[in-house]
């Protein structure tokens, strides 16, 4: 487990979700949820299937408009953004929130390198003078393009795909695709990286590599990460803070250790009530 001091001055809240409610027709997917994620930390959102985790993600990243509630993101320079009132693409472009998807959404027909180049679209767009200067091949554009390729190469190396840079993303093995998607999100230079079940479908070795990658992203780049995960080995090993969701309601929050010992959490995962869960735990012990 990583030992990051919880009360350092640099560690303020990057994301504050308060009173988030999302209804689909008559179904309440999320009910009055509040939690925070701290800057430079890895925060996890866990819960059983159907607890509403992905819905929370979709609200944060602008794919759903929440029924009510407030999602506020604060950059390290103090600038603050109200995410639910930003258009979907502006959440990444302006508020600098990048995400990955539960079922990988790479551009399968583009190469790994091209995937990372697409992620730098906004920066490159400015550099190409909104296409015009690029069309004429101005030197400013060429420098910017080279810088973008360099950044892509850096990330390809980080995820061990440098040699396969020119292969179609759709041809890469599953585990590589997962890491490439994370690298692609990082190429947008995000303030907050949201990962939707990054370890899903990975074997133990790949999952271990993923842990290292995420920890190094946090430590080297000072990035803040919010992740949804089923795989407890990932959550427990790398998270600094865990929020537990069940039926759209927050049922616990704290360090991985605190959460692990919370009878409410165990009850939710076992699908029983608290007393039974306590009995099970005592029986275990």
């Amino acid at each position: 487990m990583s030992a990051v001091p919880a009360s350092s001055a640099a560690h303020d809240d990057i994301l504050a979700v308060s009173g988030l409610t999302m209804r689909f027709g008559g179904i309440v997917a999320i009910n009055d949820l509040s939690f925070t994620a701290r800057r430079g930390e890895i925060s996890a959102l866990i819960g059983p299937n159907g607890a509403g985790k992905t819905t929370v993600f979709n609200c944060i990243t602008g794919f759903y408009k929440p029924t009510s509630g407030d999602i506020r993101l604060t950059h390290s320079d103090g600038k603050s953004y109200v995410l639910q009132s930003l258009n979907d693409f502006r959440i990444c472009k302006v508020a600098k929130v990048a995400r990955t998807f539960q079922n990988i959404r790479l551009f399968p027909g583009l190469t790994a390198l091209e995937n990372l180049m697409v992620a730098q679209h906004n920066a490159l767009m400015r550099a190409s003078g909104f296409t015009l200067m690029g069309l004429l091949g101005m030197p400013g554009w060429r420098t910017a393009e080279k810088a973008a390729i360099d950044l892509s190469s850096y990330w390809l190396e980080r995820i061990g795909l440098f040699d396969r840079a020119d292969e179609a993303a759709g041809n890469l093995p599953y585990g590589d695709q997962r890491r490439l998607e994370i690298a692609r999100a990082m190429c947008t230079e995000p303030a907050l990286l949201c990962l939707d079940e990054p370890a899903a479908g990975l074997n133990a070795r790949e999952s271990g590599e993923l842990n290292e990658l995420l920890l190094s992203i946090r430590d080297d780049r000072g990035a803040s990460i919010l992740l949804i995960e089923h795989d407890m080995s990932v959550v427990m090993e790398i998270s600094d803070h865990v929020t537990v969701l069940d039926y759209g309601v927050k049922i616990a929050g704290g360090t991985p250790q605190q959460v692990r010992d919370d009878p409410k959490v165990i009850a939710a995962y076992l699908g029983t009530d608290e007393e039974t869960a306590l009995a099970v735990m005592e029986g275990d012990a």
Binding site: T61, G62, F63, D88, F89, R90, I91, C92, K93, A98, R99, F101, R105, L106, F107, P108, G109, L110, E114, M117, V118, A119, Q120, H121, N122, L124, M125, S128, T131, G134, L135, G137, R184, A185, T188
Partner: peptide
């Protein structure tokens, strides 16, 4: 051919491949 190598052309092809992913990468569809 020039446009394909520029961000706008790459965004077109990316949009063909996956519109949702484009939006998540900050591309204005």
């Amino acid at each position: 051919i020039r446009l394909r190598g520029l961000p706008i052309g790459r965004a077109w092809e990316a949009m063909r491949e996956d519109e949702v992913a484009c939006r998540a990468l900050g591309i204005n569809i």
